[in-house]
Amino acid sequence: MSVENHTPFPALAFRQYNMVGELMGVVVARGTFKLTKDGPLQLADEQYPLVMSDTYEGDPHETPHLACTDLAPFKPGTDVTFVGASFAPGGKAQSSWTCGLKVGSVDKRLRVHGPRLWRARTRKTWRGLIDRDKEDALDGWELTPGDPVAYVPIDWRLAFGGRRDEGELEANPLGMGLVGQTRFKQQPEWPAPRIELEDQPIQSVTDRPQPAGFAPISPFWKDRAELAGTYDEDWVEKRHPLLPEDFDYAFWQAAPRDQIAEPWLEGNEPFELTNLLPGFENLRGSLPGLALQVSIEQGAGSQSGLMVLDGVHFYMRPGVGRVFLTWRCNFLWPEREGLPRLEMAHVVEGV
């Protein structure tokens, strides 16, 4: 549905039932901004359209989630995400370094590595005198240093995860680092994760760390899927088309849980990108200090309210290099009466 839009940002309105069966109006807007050094984000000349469905690099079950749909009805916090790569300090290839994403209350650091391996250590056994198949025994696994590289993609495929031998998926189903320890003779070397949380380094082949990354996560990953509620026969008979009673609106948060700001960011917070841009070891700036307001007349006088900032998405892949902000608001709209009016509420110098 359209809105009376008095902003430079693409926006739309839609209706959806809330948990108690009321028809709510939802207005969402997306702004496209450029980075500036030591200053607020600047409005981009080209405003990218709203994202109408989750976007992936390729097959959703094999490639990363690049952008989440803007058609979410409500997010209880602000997603802070980053898609891109980390670059070695000074531009010189290194085996390992740290990088960081900080926006307001969200502060997260990763350690990245060049390609590295889990390598089997073996020892000879007396059983080999009788049975050559038992000549070598596993004596543990060593983690090799990373090969020097100039950059590391911040890609879930390079963080810990994957599918276990018994078929069960890790929290990051795209990841790497699972080792078939019983197959050490056939495969003595296994790829090791190249991205880890700075304060939780992977030290053992048996470690099962949380996924380490900055990018959005898919709705069918464990951390989000467990918030979606129960869709069973009881739900079909008693609740449909409403959401299940155990549905959690945090399901719509596409950021990893440690990258969600609650309550929402106000929109003027400082940010810092550490080793996430070529040529800038630390790029500091701030959100643009911008607020949007929605008003609507439904026959009983005009009602208005501020939208909340529920998404800050740094998309630093080559050819794009933009920051996307999303705002959202909800209001009762049972009869679809009136046309939502969207306008700027506050702009600081620089936008």
Rank of each mutant, 00 (worst) to 15 (best):
L12M: 15
A13H: 15
F14T: 05
F14H: 10
Q16W: 12
Q16A: 14
Y17S: 11
M19Y: 09
V20F: 11
V20P: 02
G21R: 07
E22C: 05
L23C: 06
L23Q: 11
M24P: 07
G25Y: 04
V26S: 09
V27G: 10
V28L: 04
A29S: 12
R30L: 06
R30C: 08
R30W: 04
R30E: 13
K34F: 09
K34Y: 12
L35G: 09
K37Y: 12
D38I: 11
G39Y: 04
L41V: 02
L41R: 06
L43V: 13
A44F: 06
A44T: 02
D45I: 12
E46M: 14
E46I: 15
E46G: 09
Y48D: 15
P49C: 09
P49Q: 06
P49G: 07
M52V: 09
M52A: 07
S53F: 09
S53Q: 15
D54P: 05
T55M: 13
T55V: 15
T55G: 10
Y56N: 02
E57S: 11
G58D: 00
D59G: 05
P60Y: 03
P60I: 09
H61P: 04
E62A: 14
P64K: 03
P64C: 03
H65Y: 05
H65S: 02
L66N: 02
L66I: 01
L66T: 07
T69R: 01
D70Y: 11
D70L: 02
L71M: 15
A72R: 12
K75G: 03
K75A: 02
K75D: 03
K75W: 03
K75L: 00
P76K: 09
P76Q: 02
G77E: 00
D79F: 12
D79Q: 13
T81F: 01
T81G: 03
T81K: 09
T81Q: 00
F82E: 08
F82N: 07
F82P: 03
V83S: 00
G84C: 01
F87V: 01
F87K: 01
F87G: 06
F87P: 08
A88W: 07
G90F: 05
G90I: 00
G91N: 01
G91L: 06
K92W: 04
Q94C: 06
S96G: 07
S96L: 06
